[in-house]
């Protein structure tokens, strides 16, 4: 597979065309707005955590490129039903896959289908697109209201 088709795999294109769990979730227990000033991408992530800190519901809305929309869409799928701690752990691993040295083939991880984004590592300018939704979700869990990729 070429580097480019690795980036734009069918699954990613499909998620960006038909994002899952797209829309507002109100009321919700946690939400945060994320912004990537470099490309104008903007996203809001909404979560409902139950009394055991389990993600009962998660949705997102906003605008962005193929990578950022697909990443947000797949994030909502994988996080539903996870605990807050699990969500934070997956966020860490996702980031490590893209910016440091998590070897998805040889190291144990909970990324599952998300490894499809590993090709983004080859495009440093696109890493922020893939991680925007995740940073936003993480900040929502930490109860911040706004987050930017440029700080």
């Amino acid at each position: 597979m070429s580097k480019l088709s690795q980036l734009y795999q069918q699954v990613i294109l499909d998620h960006s065309r038909k994002p899952r769990n797209f829309g507002e979730l109100k009321p919700c227990t946690h939400s945060c707005e994320g912004y990537n000033p470099l490309c104008g991408d903007q996203i809001t992530v909404y979560l409902n955590l139950d009394e055991n800190n389990i993600v009962e519901e998660i949705k997102f809305d906003g605008i962005g490129c193929t990578i950022s929309q697909a990443s947000a869409s797949m994030m909502t799928q994988i996080l539903k039903g996870k605990t807050k701690e699990e969500a934070e752990k997956i966020f860490q691993e996702f980031q490590q896959m893209l910016v440091s040295d998590l070897d998805i083939n040889n190291q144990q991880n909970s990324l599952g289908k998300l490894t499809i984004f590993s090709g983004v590592k080859e495009y440093p300018s696109r890493v922020k697109c893939a991680t925007l939704a995740w940073h936003t979700m993480n900040s929502a869990l930490q109860s911040k209201n706004k987050v930017s990729t440029e700080i």
Binding site: L4, C39, D41, G64, C65, T66, Y123, C129
Partner: peptide
């Protein structure tokens, strides 16, 4: 189509 995606295809292909 997001400009970022346009940029990547134009560059790579």
């Amino acid at each position: 189509i997001h400009p970022h995606d346009i940029g990547t295809i134009l560059d790579q292909e």
